Simulated assay, not measured.
Amino acid sequence: MFKNPSKLLFLVTLMMGTLITISSTSWLGIWMGLEINLLSFIPLMMNPNNLLSTEASLKYFLTQALASSVLLFTVLFLMMNKEFFSQINLKSYFFNIIILSTLMLKSGAAPFHFWFPEVMEGLSWLNNLILMTWQKIAPLMLISYCMEMNFMFISIILCILIGGLSGLNQTSLRKIMAYSSINHLGWMLSSMIFSETLWLIYFLFYSFLSFSVILLFNMFNFNHINQAFSLTKMNPVIKFSMFFSLLSLGGLPPFLGFFPKWLVIQSISSINQTFLLAIMVTLTLITLFFYTRICFSAFMMNYSEMLWNYSFYYKNFNMMLLLTITFFSMFGLILVSIIYPIF
C-alpha cells in the first residue's frame, strides 16, 4: 500500500480530512472534513486482486454518504429555522438525536452497525486497521460535543451486547475483529460520558492493541479460525504472542488492555451505575471466549518440532516488533500503573 505514491497521497489526505473535522468551528467545516476523509478512503479500499473490496467500498460509500447527507440537511434546517425551534425548545433534544444517530452510523456503533462487519470482510488487514482506529476519531470527537445521556446509555448497552453475542457464531477473523470493535466502541462511549481525556486514553490503548493483533494476522495471512491450526507447527513465541495479544485486547488482567477498562469501571462505580457496569463486564467476558477459540487448537494439539528451525524468526524486523509489542501487552499494566499516578 505504501509503495504506491498515489495511495500514500490518499492516506495523507485522509488524515487531513480528520484533522479538518476535529479542528473546525462550524458544522459546514465539519461536513467538509468528513467528506474529504470519505473520498480519500475509498481509493485506499480498492484492490484489483480482491473482488470483495469493490463491494465493500460501495457499501462504505453509500452508508457514509447517507449519514453525511442527513447531517448536512439537519444542520441547514436548524440554521434556517433557528428562531422557531428556539421558541418551542425542540432543538436541544430532537435534532441532537438525529445528529448523534448520523455520527454513530459513521462510526459503526450499535444500533447503526449493520454495515461495519460486511465492509470489514472485504478489506485488507491494513485497511481494517484504519477503519477500526483512525476512521473513528472524527465521529467520536463529534459525539462528545453533543451527547444525550438516555440515547448514549441505550447505544452503550447495544454495542456491548451485539459486539459480544454476534461474534460467537463467526468463523471469519475479520468479522470477529469487527464485532470486537463494536464492543470496544461501547466502552469508549461510556468513557466519553465522564471526560474527553478518558475516552482518548481508551482509544489510544485500543489502537495499540488492535495494531498488535492485526500485525500478527497480516504477517501470517490469517483470515479464518480454521487457519489457526497452522499455528501448531509454528514457533511457541508466535503462539504466545498471538494468545497474549488477544487476551490483552479482551481486557483480561493483568494484561495491558485491562488498564483502560479499569479506569472506565472506576468512573462508572463513582456514579453508582451498578446495573450498567454489571452488563458491560459480563457481556465483555463473552468476547474472551471467541478470542481464546482462535488459539485454542494451537495449544491443545500435540505436535513434533525441531529446535534448529527457530533461529530465523528472530532475524526478522517484524518478529522483533512483534516481541516488543507482546512484552508491552504482558507487562504494560505494571508499567502504566507505576507511571499513571505520577501524572
Rank of each mutant, 00 (worst) to 15 (best):
L71C: 09
F116G: 09
E55D: 15
F112I: 11
L123G: 00
Q87E: 06
L105C: 12
I97Q: 13
Q87W: 09
T74Q: 07
S107G: 12
F114N: 12
I97W: 14
N96C: 07
I88G: 00
E118T: 09
L66T: 15
F116W: 10
I97R: 06
F116T: 13
K106E: 01
N96V: 07
L52W: 07
L105D: 04
L105V: 05
Q87S: 03
M120D: 00
L52Q: 13
L100Q: 10
I88P: 01
Y93G: 03
F94W: 11
N89V: 09
M120K: 02
L51R: 15
E121D: 12
E83T: 11
F73V: 11
A56L: 11
L51A: 14
E83S: 14
F77C: 11
I99Y: 03
F84N: 07
L76K: 10
F61W: 09
F61N: 05
A65W: 07
N49D: 15
L72Q: 02
L52P: 03
M104Q: 03
F112G: 08
Q64I: 03
K82N: 11
L72Y: 08
T102E: 08
L78V: 06
N89Y: 12
L90A: 10
F112E: 10
F77W: 14
Y93R: 12
S86N: 13
L58W: 13
L123R: 02
F116Y: 15
F94S: 13
F61E: 04
F116P: 06
S92G: 15
V119L: 10
F84G: 00
E55G: 14
L52A: 13
S107R: 11
Q87D: 05
L123F: 04
I97T: 13
Q64M: 05
N49K: 15
I98E: 04
S69F: 15
T102Y: 02
E83C: 03
F112P: 07
F85A: 01
M79D: 15
M120W: 04
F94Y: 14
V75S: 15
S57H: 05
L90N: 10
G122Y: 04
L90G: 11
F84I: 04
V119I: 12
W125Q: 03
M79I: 12
M104S: 00
M104G: 02
L76S: 07
I98H: 02
L90Q: 09
L66H: 04
F94G: 12
E121I: 01
K106L: 11
F73N: 03
L123S: 06
V70H: 09
M80S: 04
S107C: 15
F114R: 08
N96G: 13
V70F: 13
T54M: 04
K91G: 14
N49E: 15
F61K: 06
L62H: 09
L76F: 06
P111T: 00
A67S: 14
L52V: 04
S57I: 02
E118M: 10
L66M: 14
A110M: 00
A56F: 09
K59M: 11
G122P: 05
S92N: 14
I88W: 08
L58N: 13
S86M: 08
L76R: 03
M120Q: 06
F73M: 12
K91W: 10
L100K: 01
L78T: 02
T102W: 03
M80Y: 01
